[in-house]
Design a protein around this nucleic acid. Structure first.
Lengths: 155, 155
DNA sequence: ATAATAATAGTCAACATTAGTCAAAAAGTT
DNA sequence: AACTTTTTGACTAATGTTGACTATTATTAT
């Protein structure tokens, strides 16, 4: 019952395919035409919904026969991906990005739903609301990295 | 029977729908138009009448296709106990006290071992690492309260 | 080989479309 | 009168859409 905008619809379309195949290769202009939007909207969808935080790796090629390839990756089982993720987090991370990472961990089965919800509660915007936004994002990054480390070494 | 002000009427309208469906998704401007009030009045109604204390959680999205989603949640049986804990915590709590609370919740079976460890990782001294101890304890209190609030309902 | 041309995808900023915040004004209560 | 709650609207923030311009790669012509 959600998703009245084109971006959500394109996202859903791509993820439905990815549920089966783990990887897809598209032509930007074809997808744009299919959904009756400008080609750059495909970039917007990819940049907001198919990031490494979401558990996706995207590669593309321009020129004749160009393509955009989207692959679903498993976050914690793949050490390289995890390192990349930690690098992306760096010293600060906002609420939306943290949410995406936790959701990815849930989808990969690393966290149960309840575990994910508790972690999200700890990092929520309202929870960490500081005078200074930068401090909020810094603390969130520290919490998230602490959680990821905890998950690495397991109980 | 409530008073006749607009806020009460909007509240009643939304809660009547929620009695059937468990969750609704509205467009702020549409509801405002329906009741002939300014959009921000919808925020007022939500903030005063659809809080977690009342058993509701609210999520929203801005931009094209934006929405406000209100869900009725089932409060768990020990929700009032959690409320008491929240009252005791107040504005700040140190690391040791927080540990004791989490341990109690583990012993009572409210949290699994893994859940408890994740929560502790989020609130750990090294994780929060503030220069000012008072600020650290304030942040820890906010995190712990947020988690306790989350524990008041399932999924 | 090299240069020109065609065929792709990427970037960025302006504009559009929502919801959120905050504080003053108005209305209601005690 | 003093205090609380509700109403209002100007301003802010977040998200989505569009198109002109740029960058890269492949193909074709010289």
């Amino acid at each position: 019952m959600q998703g009245q905008n084109i971006s959500d619809i394109i996202e859903e379309y791509l993820k439905r395919i990815l549920a089966d195949t783990h990887q897809i290769e598209i032509k930007r202009s074809e997808i744009a035409q299919l959904f009756n939007c400008v080609p750059s909207q495909i970039n917007y969808v990819i940049n907001t919904r198919f990031t490494i935080q979401n558990g996706y790796i995207v590669r593309s090629k321009r020129g004749g026969g160009g393509y955009i390839r989207i692959a679903k990756v498993n976050l914690v089982s793949d050490a390289d991906v995890l390192d990349e993720l930690i690098a992306v987090i760096g010293d600060d991370i906002n609420s939306a990005q943290a949410f995406q990472i936790i959701q990815s961990l849930f989808e990969d089965g690393v966290l149960t739903r309840k575990e994910a919800n508790l972690v999200l509660a700890a990092m929520d915007q309202r929870t960490l609301a500081f005078e200074d936004k930068r401090i909020e994002n810094t603390v969130r990054a520290r919490i998230l990295i602490s959680i990821l480390n905890r998950l690495k070494y397991d109980d």
